[in-house]
Nucleic acid binder design. Sequence first.
DNA 1: TAAATGAGTGAACAGACGTGCACTCAAATT
DNA 2: AATTTGAGTGCACGTCTGTTCACTCATTTA
Lengths: 218, 218
Amino acid sequence: MHSAYAGEVSEEIRSRAERKERTRQRLLDVTLRLIADRSLSSLSLREVAREAGIVPTAFYRHYASMDALGVDLVDDSMRPLRQMIRDARRGRTAHGDIIVETVAVLAKQVRDHPDQFRFLTRERYGGVGPVRRAIATELKLFTSELTVDLARLTTGFDWSADDLEMAASLMVGAMLSTVMDLLETDERHPEDVHAILDKAERQLRMIALGMGQWRSKP
Amino acid sequence: MHSAYAGEVSEEIRSRAERKERTRQRLLDVTLRLIADRSLSSLSLREVAREAGIVPTAFYRHYASMDALGVDLVDDSMRPLRQMIRDARRGRTAHGDIIVETVAVLAKQVRDHPDQFRFLTRERYGGVGPVRRAIATELKLFTSELTVDLARLTTGFDWSADDLEMAASLMVGAMLSTVMDLLETDERHPEDVHAILDKAERQLRMIALGMGQWRSKP
DNA sequence: TAAATGAGTGAACAGACGTGCACTCAAATT
DNA sequence: AATTTGAGTGCACGTCTGTTCACTCATTTA
């Protein structure tokens, strides 16, 4: 619980700005941890402050409200998703099945950052206005990244921009469903996880088959 | 606001059980209305009671907690979805495009029962445990209904049960995404609604194309 | 007709909440 | 070395919460 050498293991903190940043990060971390099985709106400012080891009023030195913290948390939680795109693109250049690689990357990111993904999927529609809009914006960005990738894969088939976006959002939707299924699965049942990932692969493969047959309206 | 003839327009209520049922229904109605832009967990028992015109303690005559009310509300909100299946099946027997009919039915149900759909999509992942599980159960039922329909349409192509379920859940996912998009769209912009429905049609059509190419593993 | 039932009342409680205000006291600035 | 800054403190407030308890009184039951 407490290491006698903790103070010597971690770097010394002298700067005031640095201390503030630490506290801010701590606020984000405990919030993410606390909403593992509840919604952000059911979380009180006092509870977050208490868990972060500061007095309620000190919270205001960092955020004007819990909503503001929530919006900030969206940025923070999007990092694993952005990393996912980079990893997936790297996997693409290597030999092997694109779909298998993509699902594998997805599974790894969800396994490594469950709280972030839980927050995003939970608050995507269930959250309060500002948070919901922030997530919608980021996911639209994510979808348009995928649209770019799809455009590269469909050169010569004259897909319309609208159809590319349609296909991309279908894929993103399937992937988000997969994420939520993964998060609701007890990780001590590896066969369940495998079934979910297998289903995700088949779904993406079926969409790919559909794309192969698709012809955009002129 | 108040009609002088209100008492004469509606039926007289004498039975006690009937009065209780009215109050219960009123609790469900005001709850559905109040969470139009918030989550169920951010709603207080007192607020619901106040809006329903009863004293807080009278709430307990109907439900042991807000969670219990939430679970009951899932049943209530599922009615439009069940109606949707029936309507879609009826549309199927008539001449015309299955997909166009299905999307039209979906659009109509969402337009007629926005609060119910909002509740379901909001609390599906964002909600508290019991409500989330209740919704998951009902949606699984919905998906298996669709699986049955798909089985009928794919006779002779020896699809495995697993693959049928995979395709059905892909479709359900696309439809739920459509629902959420519809709910977030200002209904005073009919062209936005049209764009969303058009996208939904194309997505379902693309899945259908994929299914045409699909061969289940033996 | 008399008794039992049960939906709804009203006061009271202990606890949690958000936020205002005056404060401390290192670190940063001058 | 003297001054300013600002993250974090401690207290106080008014409000809202869930839940308890003893109650009323119309409807139902016996």
